[in-house]
Amino acid sequence: MSYILIVEDEQDIARLVARTLEKEGFKTRIASSLAEGQELIDKEIPELVILDLMLPDGNGLELCKYLRFQEKTEIPVMILTAKGEEIDRILGFEMGADDYIVKPFSPKELSLRVKAILKRVKQTEAPSAAITIGPLYIDPNSMKVKIDKEEIKLTRTEFNLLLALAKAKGKVLTREILLEKVWGYTFEGYARTVDTHVRRLRKKLGPCAEMIETVWGIGYRFKD
């Protein structure tokens, strides 16, 4: 049976997260440090990692980086931290986090967002044709993106965001619609999550960044 790994040194919070998820039928394990978390991951691959940033032996982003760049890219990561500044969110998403929750948090919201992440990961779509728009090539089947035949590396969430925008080419998608399509949930106050990912995506798209237009006060549109 797969499980959810909670990497959190505050035992009260770790136990609250574990109880919340176990009520939903998940198996959980708790690690109180980066070293312990990495050791448990190496022994058995979890279904999801819920990760604090401030740990006794370092920054949780180091574990996120380890998962993303050492052939463990398929493990989704949810950051759960007291660090709620925009720069912290940007760094978390840049390291490949799938979601970011700031303490204090609602256990109900945590549960819903965990389910949304796992649903996205397990969801398999029927094979669909690649999308070519100018120099941009998007292959939904292999999750590869190329610009002028040169592959660019995107996180799973960045890829899904680009695909959602490209499929709706010419149409305006609100932040709320993008949250639902890409993240699988809509919560008030989380529209900035979309903005953060769009900024990261534009940076990686380089010369194709201007294909994603901002429709002020509404959302985003992929140029027709």
Rank of each mutant, 00 (worst) to 15 (best):
71 E>V: 02
71 E>K: 13
71 E>H: 13
71 E>A: 14
71 E>S: 13
72 K>L: 07
73 T>K: 15
73 T>P: 08
74 E>N: 08
75 I>V: 11
76 P>E: 04
76 P>V: 00
76 P>H: 01
76 P>L: 01
76 P>F: 05
77 V>N: 02
77 V>R: 00
78 M>G: 04
79 I>A: 11
80 L>N: 01
81 T>I: 00
81 T>V: 02
83 K>C: 11
84 G>H: 05
86 E>Q: 12
86 E>L: 15
86 E>F: 14
86 E>N: 11
86 E>G: 06
88 D>C: 14
89 R>I: 09
90 I>P: 06
90 I>F: 06
94 E>A: 07
94 E>K: 07
97 A>C: 09
97 A>V: 00
100 Y>A: 06
100 Y>G: 06
100 Y>H: 02
101 I>E: 08
102 V>W: 02
103 K>N: 11
104 P>G: 01
105 F>I: 01
105 F>K: 00
107 P>C: 05
108 K>W: 15
109 E>R: 09
109 E>S: 09
110 L>H: 10
110 L>D: 04
111 S>K: 10
113 R>L: 07
113 R>I: 10
114 V>R: 00
116 A>E: 03
117 I>E: 04
117 I>M: 11
119 K>S: 07
119 K>R: 11
119 K>H: 07
120 R>Y: 01
120 R>E: 02
120 R>M: 05
122 K>V: 08
122 K>W: 07
123 Q>E: 06
123 Q>H: 14
123 Q>F: 05
124 T>S: 11
124 T>D: 10
124 T>H: 11
124 T>R: 13
125 E>G: 12
126 A>C: 06
128 S>Y: 03
128 S>A: 15
128 S>C: 04
128 S>M: 09
129 A>S: 11
130 A>H: 13
131 I>D: 09
131 I>L: 15
132 T>S: 15
132 T>L: 14
134 G>N: 10
134 G>L: 11
135 P>H: 13
135 P>G: 13
135 P>C: 12
135 P>T: 13
136 L>W: 08
136 L>G: 01
136 L>S: 03
138 I>E: 07
138 I>D: 05
138 I>Q: 03
139 D>L: 08
141 N>M: 07
142 S>W: 10
142 S>K: 10
142 S>R: 09
143 M>W: 13
144 K>C: 07
145 V>P: 06
146 K>T: 07
146 K>Q: 10
